[in-house]
Design a protein around this nucleic acid. Structure first.
Length: 554
DNA sequence: GACACTCCAT
């Protein structure tokens, strides 16, 4: 039987065109294929089926102008969904890309590494940089799979990677501390004349800093020109910022800023970055010193400069100084902006000064400054934490009434507040509400729900949430696994510990490295409940993991 | 992807 013949026959079996949503159980497919062709068709390989349907549909599409939107292989139920929609316009291409990215990401997650290349090349999908980037984003928390996907596509006959895809995958490799791959990718970018750009170096530098190697980050910056990339004030400020944000101001200031500020003609932004760095480690006096130096050099502070200092006072717990500084800003007729007000609201709120926070919040409107979503988020959060969730929710409804658009943070803040107050039901309502509001819950949203369900002893619901995120567009992160694994010890049930073991295996498979503590805990648990075999399996894996990097930053 | 405001709990 030739492949071509097989496809056309299968094609005849299913009248895809007639319905907009078409679904077949695995058994049905197996039955039909077996019935028709005997045993010579392997249904075991999902990718084969996947590719087959894709071809069939594409062929059909050309004749009938029906566009295929997606083809899902959805675990854990072994069901294949083929969904088709009729399009009259071309305007839905963004939606197409999103769905296609989801499908391809699922295909990559499900495929055996060996057969992945074949299935990717078999897909009759026109790969574009946007699509590839979206797939990589979806595979963000599954580093090894993301790298595989990228690698296999490099040999694709009709697609070449873009610089942004390279940047993404360099970031992922950096996170996994696979520096050999990082530099190999940089070299490939260069040979293809699509980079590396200053953004690429920023990514690499940040990963080195995240891995506790700030000196190597600096080296990366200094070596930019060797790799054929120009250095300028922008890239100088970027590396300063990366170091400062990771609390390495001292190093940024002494080893880089002082040495090279002349060469790059350091500007207000450079000084702001350094000042902010000192503020981040609560050394506000140092920040003021740097800013004084800046003024002496003839540079004029901007509103950002003031906002940095203001936040610095709050961060250092100097509430009185913050208030006085705020008054001074007014006196000096600095144009106070929404960031200033947001900083004030949040600063007062976190120390429990709800009334003063509210006063500032009300005052800004009078001053003609419209609160931003961030301002509402700050106010709602402090109400939830220091006042009551009810008032937080009230303000949430009020902001919507006034035409402000809540974002992910808004929802997460409210959901966390509700969970904390023990109102899981309402929290779940908000979870649904955000979805209908076009605001897909992210890892944090799920993690909060999972954590509080488990804390309340509702392990089943926690696991349920975990499964839900798997079905959605959201992959679990290190936190998710840690929370869930800990929860598996609460009931002291043997089955729970097996689940803990499985979760441990899954997280390793996804490129996360469990802490030693987690390993030992799971191992002890399994041994105590008589799961010797499973424990041994994990033990073997642990010795393998010893050679892997310590901790991944996500 | 040059700076400032909003998302945990260990």
């Amino acid at each position: 039987m030739t492949k071509k013949k097989m496809f056309t026959s299968l094609f005849r079996l299913n009248d895809i065109e007639r319905s907009n949503f078409f679904c077949l159980g695995r058994e049905k497919i197996r039955g039909k294929i077996k019935g028709k062709w005997g045993n010579d068709v392997s249904i075991g390989c999902k990718c084969t089926i996947f590719a087959m349907f894709q071809r069939i549909i594409n062929r059909r599409v050309n004749k009938t102008k029906t566009k295929v939107v997606s083809l899902h292989v959805s675990p854990p139920k072994p069901t294949f969904f083929l969904s088709c929609r009729n399009f009259t316009t071309q305007s839905s291409s963004a939606l197409d890309t999103a769905t296609a990215a989801a499908d391809i990401a699922n295909l990559v997650l499900e495929s055996d590494p060996k057969s992945l290349r074949g299935s990717l090349h078999g897909l009759q999908v026109q790969f574009t940089p946007e699509l590839v980037d979206k797939v990589l984003k979806r595979l963000w928390f599954h580093g090894p799979k993301a790298l595989q996907f990228f690698k296999h596509l490099e040999y694709h006959p009709s697609y070449a990677h873009s610089s942004s895809s390279f940047d993404h995958v360099i970031d992922i490799a950096g996170r996994m501390r696979d520096y050999k791959t990082v530099w190999a990718l940089v070299a490939r970018m260069r040979s293809r004349r699509i980079g590396p750009s200053s953004k690429t170096f920023a990514i690499i530098a940040e990963r080195f800093v995240g891995a506790g190697k700030p000196d190597r980050a600096i080296k990366v910056f200094l070596s930019m020109r060797e790799h054929g990339c120009r250095q300028d004030l922008h890239s100088f400020n970027t590396i300063l910022d990366i170091l400062c944000k990771s609390k390495r101001v001292e190093m940024a200031y002494n080893n880089l800023f002082k040495v090279l500020r002349g060469k790059f003609k350091a500007d207000v932004v450079s000084y702001n970055i350094i000042a902010n760095g000192w503020c981040l480690i609560k050394r506000t006096p140092k920040a003021l010193e740097v800013l004084k130096e800046m003024v002496e050099r003839g540079l004029t502070p901007t509103i950002t400069t003031y906002n940095i200092v203001l936040k610095g006072y709050f961060r250092a717990g100097q509430i009185k100084e913050a208030w006085e500084f705020f008054l001074q800003m007014k006196e000096r007729e600095v144009e106070i902006d929404v960031v200033t007000y947001t900083t004030m609201v949040h600063g007062f709120g976190v120390v429990g000064e709800i009334k003063r926070a509210r006063k500032v919040f009300d005052e800004m409107v009078g001053e003609g400054v419209r609160p931003s979503t961030a301002t509402y988020n700050a106010m709602i959060q402090v109400l939830c934490k220091k006042d009551s969730v009810e008032n937080g929710v009230l303000l949430f409804e009020e902001m919507i009434k006034k035409g402000h658009v809540p974002n992910l943070t808004t929802y997460n803040v409210v959901i966390r507040g509700l969970c904390h107050a023990g109102n899981m039901e309402k929290a779940m309502e908000f979870m649904e509400r955000m979805k209908t509001d076009g605001c897909e819950p992210n890892v944090q949203s799920y993690n909060v729900a999972i954590r509080y369900f488990c804390d309340a002893g509702d392990i089943e619901k926690g696991l349920n949430m975990f499964e839900k995120m798997g079905q959605g567009s959201c992959l679990p992160n290190l936190d998710t696994y840690n929370v869930l694994i800990s929860a598996m010890f609460v009931r002291k049930k043997s089955e729970d510990l097996v689940v803990a073991g499985k979760l441990l295996l899954e997280m390793i498979d996804r490129g996360f490295l469990p802490r030693k503590f987690t390993f030992n805990r799971v191992l002890n648990g399994l041994l105590l409940t008589g799961n010797q075999g499973f424990a041994n399996e994990i033990l073997r894996l642990q010795s393998k993991c010893g050679r892997l990097p310590r901790k991944f930053k996500l």
